[in-house]
């Protein structure tokens, strides 16, 4: 088959580059000691992510990561690790999957959920850093987004309830937060967020 027949790759060239040559891998032989680290996902879910950070002057001085995951997960974490170097903790905390996928030149729609682990693991690492050093964590609540207007439920509230096994079903989630009991408009979105989070934290 001649090269003129070669079909486009599933992913963009940037994704391909980061997938084949991932940056800032946490080499087990490197003896790299992080100041803090975060881990999300599970092997059972097919994707797991570990991010370690070094912090200097309230900025991400260095970062390393490992993943059991697909090409999108590898590429988006690699890109994220490049983007956050030198950022303040606040800036790094506010990085979103959309910012990462934009930098990658986009991901196929059904692969988007594979790209949300990197920034989640990073936030977990920053939380870990602040906790370890007895520092206040002003970012956690500031990045929360209201997903149910009527009952003032935030995505982070849901995340916390999923993470700690307090909400293992939608019924439990509703009992605890009252989501969807007002106008009901948020229901579909919250159910989606809930499933996504359960997947990320290895609960489903």
């Amino acid at each position: 088959m001649s090269s003129s027949f070669m079909a486009d790759w599933v992913y963009t060239d940037v994704v391909k580059d980061h997938f084949m040559n991932p940056r800032n891998i946490w080499d087990k032989n490197e003896n790299w000691e992080p100041d803090a680290f975060g881990e999300v996902g599970s092997l059972a879910c097919g994707d797991q992510m570990r991010v370690g950070i070094k912090v200097f002057n309230d900025k991400i001085a260095d970062i390393r990561w490992l993943t059991y995951g697909c090409a999108s997960a590898i590429a988006s974490t690699s890109m994220m690790s490049e983007m956050v170097k030198g950022m303040t903790l606040k800036e790094a905390y506010n990085i979103t999957p959309t910012m990462i996928t934009d930098a990658l030149g986009g991901l196929p729609e059904h692969k988007f959920h594979c790209s949300v682990l990197g920034d989640k693991a990073l936030r977990a690492a920053i939380d870990d850093y602040l906790e370890k050093n007895n520092l206040p964590n002003p970012y956690k609540d500031a990045t929360a987004k209201i997903v149910c207007e009527c009952r003032n439920v935030t995505d982070q509230q849901i995340e916390e309830l999923v993470k700690t096994d307090r909400a293992t079903t939608l019924e439990e989630l509703q009992e605890l937060t009252g989501y969807g009991t007002g106008c009901g408009k948020c229901k579909k979105n919250i159910e989606h967020i809930f499933e996504e989070l359960r997947h990320i934290y290895g609960k489903s």
């Binding site: 994707d47 995951g69 697909c70 090409a71």
Partner: peptide, 23 residues
Amino acid sequence: AEGESILLMLDMYGVAVSTGSAC
């Protein structure tokens, strides 16, 4: 090692296979 990653790496070497991975 995750299946989709293996599949795509093999594809880079010109080898076409399948995977049971959800990804």
